[in-house]
């Protein structure tokens, strides 16, 4: 993780599991002793946003930047001026959780001139079980439209193929197959393969990228 660039931008189709990945990634960075900030740039999605676990982040000393309008339940597309701080202050390791699709990625576009070319990684999170990104053509179409709206280039792929609590190893391998096809076409590396901690011992050896074990933080009310 420390090999990734200072600013980690997490993008993808909505429902790909971007936020779950971004949240886990942020906690891991903080555990490694980094001065960490997470920017919740999701102005599209009204529920299941990283800002809803702000207290947990703050307990770990992680700086959370969400809307400039306080109160987590709003759908006001207001971005905080604090975002500039963590983009410019190089003492911060910054994770940006971007809203889904090109609509969500547009919010990132305005920071185009504040993000230096060699200072960021942009991950495209892919879930092959999401019907609109389940084949190569559609996955690439989403990836390109996000690049266009955000005015940033994707630097790596993240395989996050899951089915919530019903995920099997075959799902992860199916996602890997899709990621390989996209990788081959676009010349992008597969940086991480995301897997729930409970499945980690069942993974075969032929996994591409670093294995990224996660916990579930974005819980439904009956999962608490």
């Amino acid at each position: 993780m420390k090999k990734d660039k200072r600013i980690r931008i997490i993008t993808g189709h909505y429902g790909s599991g971007k936020t779950e990945f971004a949240v886990n990634y942020t906690f891991k960075l903080a555990e490694q002793g980094c001065k960490t900030a997470i920017v919740d740039l999701d102005i599209v999605n009204p529920y299941f946003r990283s800002r809803q676990i702000e207290p947990e982040f703050e307990k770990k000393g992680i700086r959370v930047i969400a809307s400039s309008v306080r109160g987590l339940a709003g759908d006001v597309p207001a971005l905080s001026p604090e975002i500039y701080t963590v983009l410019e202050d190089k003492s911060y390791q910054t994770v940006i959780d971007v809203g889904g699709d090109k609509v969500g990625a547009r919010a990132l576009g305005r920071y185009h001139d504040k993000i230096e070319q060699d200072d960021y990684d942009m991950f495209f999170v892919l879930n092959a079980n999401r019907p609109l990104t389940s084949d190569k053509e559609n996955a690439i179409r989403y990836l390109k439209s996000i690049e266009q709206a955000s005015r940033q280039k994707v630097t790596a792929l993240v395989n996050n193929t899951h089915l919530c609590g019903e995920t099997k190893i075959e799902d992860i391998l199916k996602g890997q197959e899709l990621c390989l096809q996209v990788s081959e076409e676009l010349g992008l590396p597969i940086r991480y393969t995301v897997v729930h901690k409970s499945l980690i011992n069942y993974l075969p050896d032929n996994i591409y990228g670093e294995i990224f074990p996660i916990d579930i933080y974005m819980k439904k009310p009956w999962e608490m």
């Binding site: 909505y14 079980n129 999401r130 019907p131 899951h162 089915l163 919530c164």
Partner: peptide, 14 residues
Amino acid sequence: AKELWKGNEAIAEA
């Protein structure tokens, strides 16, 4: 096979 759907999308597709 099962796929992962968001409620609103799934209602529209149904």
